[in-house]
C-alpha cells in the first residue's frame, strides 16, 4: 500500500509541476498587468492563440523554441491591442478583455484547423531524475525548462516591483493613478507596456500547452486555464512569489485525477478532474472575505472601485 501512496505522491509531484507551469506564466503576466491597475481577461485568448501559433511554427520550422518565441510575440501583439483600446476614453477593460478572449480563441480555431492532425516537434524536458533507478522518480523529475523560466520570472518580478524605479512606478500607477499623473507619469503608457508584457507570458504558456503538456494542438486544449489564472492572481494577493505556490496548488489539484488513475483508481475520475474548478470556486469565496486581500488589492482596479 505504501508503494501505491508513493506512486501517487510522485505522480502528483510531477503532475503538479507540469500542470502548474501554464498557470504560473499566465498568473505572472496577469499580476504584472493588474499591478498597474488594469485587468486583462483576454489572456485566455492569448493562451489559445499562443498554443496554436507555437504548434504551427514548430511544425513548419522544426524548432519548438522558435514556436515559443512566436507565441510570445503573438501574445504581446494581442495584449498591446487590449492596452491600446483601453486607452480610449470610457472604455471598460473587462468588456474589452472578454472581446479579446473570444477574438484570440476565434483566430486560433480559424487558423489552427490544418494543424490538428500533423505532429510537430515538441519541447524537450530536462531529466533531473537519472540518479534514481526508480522509473516513477525519473518520470516525475522530467521538468520542462519553462517551469524554471517561470520560477525565475517570479523572483525577478518580485525584485523588480520592490527595488527598481519601474517597479515603484508600476505600483504607484496601479494604486493611485492621480498621484502618478501628478508626477508626470503617463499612466496609459505604463499600462500598455505592462499589459503587452503580461500578454507575452500568456503566449508562452500557450506554447507550453501545445508543445509539451498535453503536447498537441486541439480546440479544447486550454479549457479555461487562462481564466482560472486570473482567479489565481486574486488568491495570490498580487504577489509574484505567492503566485508560484498558488500555481503549484492548482497544478496539484489538476494532477489528482491522472495520478489516482495511474494506480488504478478510476472511480470518480471526472470528479477529480473537476478539482481545479471546484478549487477556483472555493478560493474565490474565501478570498472575497479576506481582509488582507482588501489591503493588497491595487486601488485602481475597476472591480475594486
Amino acid at each position: 500500500m505504501s508503494d501505491a501512496v508513493f506512486m501517487v505522491m510522485m505522480a502528483m509531484f510531477g503532475g503538479a509541476i507540469r500542470v502548474s507551469t501554464p498557470f504560473l506564466l499566465v498568473a505572472l503576466g496577469e499580476t504584472l498587468t493588474e499591478k498597474t491597475g488594469r485587468i486583462n481577461l483576454g489572456l485566455e485568448g492569448n493562451l489559445v492563440l499562443g498554443a496554436m501559433v507555437a504548434y504551427a511554427t514548430s511544425y513548419s520550422t522544426g524548432s519548438p523554441w522558435l514556436g515559443v518565441l512566436a507565441a510570445a510575440g503573438t501574445g504581446t501583439v494581442l495584449s498591446a491591442g487590449h492596452g491600446w483600446i483601453c486607452k480610449l476614453p470610457k472604455v471598460n477593460d473587462i468588456a474589452v478583455g472578454i472581446a479579446f478572449m473570444t477574438l484570440g480563441t476565434g483566430l486560433a480555431f480559424f487558423f489552427g484547423k490544418p494543424f490538428i492532425q500533423p505532429t510537430a516537434p515538441r519541447l524537450d524536458a530536462i531529466e533531473l531524475g537519472n540518479w534514481s533507478s526508480n522509473p516513477q522518480v525519473q518520470q516525475a523529475l522530467k521538468i520542462n525548462p519553462l517551469f524554471f523560466v517561470g520560477l525565475a520570472l517570479a523572483v525577478v518580478l518580485w525584485w523588480m516591483l520592490k527595488n527598481t524605479r519601474w517597479g515603484l512606478i508600476i505600483r504607484m500607477t496601479g494604486d493611485n493613478a492621480a498621484a502618478a499623473r501628478a508626477m508626470g507619469i503617463s499612466v496609459d503608457r505604463v499600462r500598455l507596456v505592462a499589459t503587452a508584457a503580461g500578454g507575452s507570458l500568456a503566449g508562452i504558456a500557450g506554447a507550453f500547452l501545445s508543445l509539451y503538456y498535453p503536447g498537441s494542438w486541439n480546440e479544447s486544449l486550454s479549457s479555461g486555464q487562462g481564466l482560472m489564472a486570473v482567479a489565481l492572481v486574486i488568491f495570490a494577493r498580487w504577489s509574484p512569489i505567492r503566485c508560484v505556490w498558488a500555481a503549484l496548488l492548482f497544478g496539484a489539484s489538476g494532477a489528482l485525477g491522472p495520478a489516482l488513475q495511474s494506480i488504478g483508481i478510476s472511480k470518480g475520475y471526472y470528479f477529480f478532474n473537476a478539482a481545479p474548478y471546484i478549487l477556483t470556486l472555493i478560493i474565490m469565496v474565501l478570498s472575497a472575505r479576506s481582509q488582507k486581500a482588501a489591503h493588497e488589492v491595487p486601488g485602481e482596479l475597476s472591480i475594486v472601485k
Binding site: K162, N163, T164, R165, L168, H295
Partner: peptide, 26 residues
C-alpha cells in the same frame, strides 16, 4: 491625502523624488 496607499512610507518618500535611480539600493 496624496500618498500611495499600497507603498510603504519609505517608498512613498523615494518615489516623490525627481531623480529615482533605475535600481534602488534600499
Amino acid at each position: 491625502f496624496t500618498l500611495v496607499p499600497c507603498l510603504t512610507a519609505a517608498e512613498n518618500l523615494v518615489i516623490s523624488r525627481r531623480d529615482i535611480p533605475m535600481v534602488i539600493n534600499w
